[in-house]
Design a protein around this nucleic acid. Structure first.
Length: 423
DNA sequence: CCCGTGACGGTTGAA
DNA sequence: CATTCAACCGTCACG
């Protein structure tokens, strides 16, 4: 790719569009995270660009060797560059690994809450766990508000308001009064208690229903009504799923359940998600933060795509005895170099937990492996929250009832807040 | 220095 | 099957 781009000779044009940009510390940090070496950039040049991507060559101060990087402009603001390739989990300013667009693992989310309840200041939590303070703030605020550490449901659409029942009533209204207006139907739905103000379809939605699903029927009913007396509306045979998901007020998001899986409140979901052995002692006593930081500093070798796949399968990290008994260097090395030579995940990466061996063969390392390595008590079987419900740990768990944030506040106001370094 | 907040790029899944 | 859209994510910068 690089040679082809070098030969395009479009630098001059790009220079006019995008002025020369010195690598910012952020850029260097990101680049550094993607390379084993320290790219002490001394110069750079725009090689080529598309509408959204720039390719720049950076010179290393130490070796003089040029590194080619694909960059995109964030907000088209000069000076703000972001490395796009390789598509690893990215590294934030604190050195923590994250996957853009994906929530932090529940283990880390739980740890944030636990540390906060110990009286550790959010800024210290941020530094210790290498999670941005904004994220810590958000997670703690959410926990304070909802009592749940879980992220909201990502993706999907709003719960539809045009349920079969609503459509059936609209059909009935239309049959009884073919000339009825959509807004009249809307009023009647509200008046008849079919809908409330929260799930009342819009006039446009009703119109669409009339046009797409009842249009023929209304015309037919007109003819039929002229010939014979009205009869009860036919059974709705619309291709709607009979299950509808609605926002989970406690979990702070919409967590649709698969058919057959009863909906559980957010706080109950927490009990389902977290196994029993994640008390503060279990979490914090297993390994010191310092030790964790060492392992945290390891960078993943998994590609973003692989990680994304991992999110949706039951990822099983190495159990703690193995990790604890593992040399740090070995652990770090494994975390760095466990990818298959061709960069593709092994089959094991996609095998769901129940079919996996007790010890993950470490052919795939998540960006968050360092966090989960010693918290297998509740991390084993940890997966991303998934609307299908399959990602929820099947283990019954006994997360202590969400402690009011007051405890944290009290601890913070105490005369001896727990220093983060003591952990 | 701490922290709340909005912008941002990104992911996800239903429609 | 590809696209659109709106939800969410964490990071970052700002005040």
């Amino acid at each position: 790719m690089s040679q082809a781009l070098f030969s395009t000779g479009c630098q001059k044009k790009n220079d006019r569009i995008f002025p020369k940009i010195r690598p910012t510390p952020r850029m260097r940090l990101k680049c550094k995270s993607h390379q084993e070496t320290d790219p002490d950039f001394t110069s750079h040049a725009t090689i080529c660009k598309t509408s959204a991507v720039q390719v720049k060559a950076f010179s290393l101060r130490s070796t003089g060797k040029k590194e080619l990087w694909v960059c995109s402009l964030l907000g088209k603001q000069p000076g703000r560059l972001k490395a796009m390739e390789p598509a690893f989990g990215e590294v934030n300013q604190l050195g923590g690994v994250f996957v853009n667009g994906r929530p932090l693992p529940n283990a880390i989310r739980l740890r944030i809450v636990e540390l906060a309840q110990l009286g550790i200041r959010p800024c210290d939590i941020s530094r210790q766990l290498r999670v941005s303070h904004g994220c810590v703030s958000k997670i703690l605020a959410r926990y304070n508000e909802t009592g749940s550490i879980l992220p909201g449901a990502i993706g999907g659409s709003k719960p539809r308001v045009t349920t079969p029942t609503v459509v059936k009533h609209i059909r009935t209204y239309k049959q009884r009064d073919p000339g009825i207006f959509a807004w009249e139907i809307r009023d009647r739905l509200l008046a008849d208690g079919v809908c409330d103000k929260f799930n009342l379809p819009s006039v446009s939605s009703i119109s669409r229903i009339l046009r797409n699903k009842i249009g023929n029927l209304s015309q037919q009913s007109q003819y039929e009504s002229a010939k014979q007396a009205p009869h009860p509306p036919p059974q709705a045979t619309l291709p709607y799923n009979h299950l509808y998901s609605y926002p989970n007020p406690i979990a702070g998001g919409k967590v649709p359940n698969p058919p057959g899986v009863p909906t559980i409140p957010g706080h109950m979901a927490m009990h389902r998600i977290w196994p029993s052995s994640h008390s503060v002692t279990d979490i914090l006593g297993i390994r010191s933060i310092t030790e964790q930081q060492i392992s945290d500093s390891t960078f993943p070798s998994s590609k973003l795509e692989d990680w994304s796949t991992l999110n949706r399968s039951n990822f099983q990290p190495p159990v703690s005895p193995v990790v604890n008994g593992m040399d740090k260097g070995q652990l770090e090395q494994e975390a760095k170099y466990t990818q298959t030579p061709n960069g593709l995940p092994t089959v094991n990466s996609y095998v769901s937990a129940p079919s996996m061996a007790p010890y993950h063969p470490a052919t795939q390392v998540s960006p968050y492996m360092a966090y989960s390595a010693t918290t297998s008590g509740y991390v084993t079987g940890h997966t991303w929250q998934h609307p299908s419900g399959s990602a929820l740990s099947p283990h019954s768990c006994d997360l202590p009832a969400p402690l009011p944030f007051k405890s944290m506040t009290m601890a913070r106001e105490g005369s001896h807040p727990v220093p983060a370094s003591a952990l």
